[in-house]
Design a protein around this nucleic acid. Structure first.
Lengths: 359, 359
DNA sequence: GCGAGTTAGTAACTCGTGTCACTCATACTA
DNA sequence: TAGTATGAGTGACACGAGTTACTAACTCGC
């Protein structure tokens, strides 16, 4: 297609006056072969001069590895948020993987349950390892691939699986959120979930909420719990419903920033002042969480770090190393803004590794 | 690494009782070879039964194409926005490319000016074509790759280049924004750029602003122009400066939503009501443009369509087809929200293909 | 029954690199 | 001097598929 004749290792060998084998040894720093510095330099010069780049396909064919890792995106319901989140994750993966000479093959799949959704990627030896973002329990290919001992790391939780998994510690994050509200003096704290409880993340965030209350000796009032569905609208509705309660909560933990935006809108429309009449804390710390009125206190997801650690694990798996810790949980970071009260106005009681927003 | 023995076409041939050549012919639907249906079925069954997937490397080596296309991200200054935007673009590319059997190799590069930044991807025949997002004029590899007649499509503008380019029509978009304000009756309209004028996009948006005013016979007042730098803070400062003018504008076109968020904050802090005392219109229509107070009227960037058209062009280039239109401009779409006034309250004068926000 | 034309299928070469096993000097040892 | 290391480098095969040029068998017309 390009019309350009490819420079091969034979050309380099010819120019350097050595055999092709020697060229290969020099360029790959073969540990066994002894090559005198003088020859080495001659080969390197020749390669440089000709602008030689080894053919990737030939190299893969011979060496049995591609230096590609696959990133499979099974986009979940919260698209909007997933977008920006995933780009950060990708960036983290890239950061770790590039210095080792790997490339990223991105694959999005609409229907993971299709029998041929992505197994071809693995079987055709397109990639050396696979990263699955948003794994699903009804994915039948994952077990098969795992059974073939193909390196796989999941970004997200998949219960009852012994695959390597990297995820955010949703329970601890939710706990931290509620503890922050408790530390500010709130006792009547409501909860709006990010999504339905079929999602592990939603379940875990609810669990963290309950746990924090229990630990603090605050009774868990079921009537203060509402469910969102990842959308702004669901947050609006949930908050409206909470406002109709005979005894209003003084604070609400919304397990998703986007849903929290809806809640904020509902509060504004109802003329309820945030944070004086109602403190609001979100989750995810989406990029524009500090742009709304009032700027939203939230829990920052370590997206880049998720990508990095997952990539490190995957590289180990590819190298055949043993993984000691198959379930990694990364901590969220509490970012305090104005929606929970101006810092310092109330009792400021540093409960966790909380950081002021410095964007 | 995986320990699993790969199924080869020889295995399939053996099982089907034919030669390897026949297997290849059947599986690739070779147009020349005549294969009776009965044999065809036998081969297909055998392949199916063994779970045969052709080895990608071997296939690439023999056929001289990889079925991979590279997407190079040269992240620009407006990172925050780029993230979500790029994911949309990727999605569009994927949509077009996947059905044709192509995969996406994502590569981010921090320093494009490095002599070896990404040319290896091309030279090593890792990919069949390249898409460059955010191309830069000081990129020295691009001309070299182009000279080798390697298929390349740019996402963005690169003046003085005969490479294929797909971009948003920033001039027309800006024009539409200002025309909307004019149609609402505004005459004193300020401008805040998204970034410094070294960026083509910034220059074009300014040009569109001036063009719209000129066409409408409104004199262009230089004192109403301010420059942002992609950040919220720059928008805040720019708007403050505009508010200090002896004769305030009644509307402002901010050539970036993020910068516009800053402007909105400045207006709120100054107690200026939007849109009654000051109409504000943004550009980009970032996902949370409808989440701020008041929801921001903006121009929607067709991110997915950008990816799609770029992908279509790249596929044509790879196939060796001639490209008639090397400079494609996609139109933005005016999304009217509350920051320019409730629709219908003033004279509603449909100026362009404006659509109500239906998110 | 014979050449021409078609059908069905294959042997053998190619793609470019990695790597094992082996050679040929030269240097060192006893 | 014979024998053995060691250093420097190569020949040849493997990797798995695409593809060209060819053959063998079979059909048809006369």
């Amino acid at each position: 297609m390009t019309g350009q004749k490819q420079v091969t290792s034979s050309d380099v060998a010819k120019l350097a006056g050595v055999s092709r084998t020697t060229v290969s040894f020099v360029l790959n720093n073969a540990p066994n072969a002894q090559i005198p510095e003088e020859t080495r330099q001659r080969v390197l010069m020749a390669a440089q001069q000709l602008g030689y780049y080894p053919n990737a396909a030939a190299r893969s064919l011979a060496s049995q590895h591609t230096n590609n890792i696959g990133v499979l995106l099974c986009q979940s319901a919260d698209r909007l948020f997933a977008d920006v989140f995933l780009m950060e994750v990708l960036s983290g993966i890239h950061q770790v993987i590039r210095p080792k000479g790997y490339h990223i093959l991105v694959e999005a799949v609409e229907d993971v349950t299709a029998p041929d959704a992505y197994i071809g990627l693995v079987r055709s030896r397109h990639i050396d390892g696979l990263m699955v973002s948003g794994p699903r329990a009804d994915d039948t290919q994952l077990p098969r691939i795992h059974a073939e001992r193909f390196p796989v790391v999941l970004l997200g939780r998949l219960p009852n699986s012994d695959l390597c998994q990297v995820d955010v510690d949703n329970v601890r994050g939710a706990r931290a959120a509620v503890e922050h509200l408790l530390a500010l003096g709130h006792r009547r704290i409501a909860f709006i979930s990010n999504g339905p409880l079929v999602y592990t993340a939603s379940r875990d965030r609810l669990r963290g909420y309950v746990a924090a209350l229990t630990t603090a000796g605050v009774p868990h009032d079921e009537s203060l719990v509402r469910y969102g569905n990842f959308s702004r609208a669901s947050g609006y509705a949930a908050m409206q419903s909470l406002l109709e309660l005979p005894e209003r909560p003084t604070a609400v933990f919304v397990a998703s920033d986007v849903v929290a935006f809806g809640a904020l809108a509902a509060l504004r429309d109802a003329g309820v002042h945030v944070p004086d009449e109602m403190a609001v804390i979100g989750f995810d710390d989406v990029p524009l969480a500090d742009q709304v009125t009032p700027p939203l206190t939230s829990l920052h997801l370590p997206a880049r770090e998720l990508g990095q650690t997952a990539a490190e694990i995957l590289l180990k798996l590819i190298a055949g190393e043993a993984i000691t810790n198959r379930l990694v949980s990364l901590d969220t970071r509490l970012v305090i803004r104005e929606s929970t009260g101006k810092p310092g106005t109330l009792q400021s009681q540093p409960d966790m590794a909380a950081s002021q927003d410095t964007r």
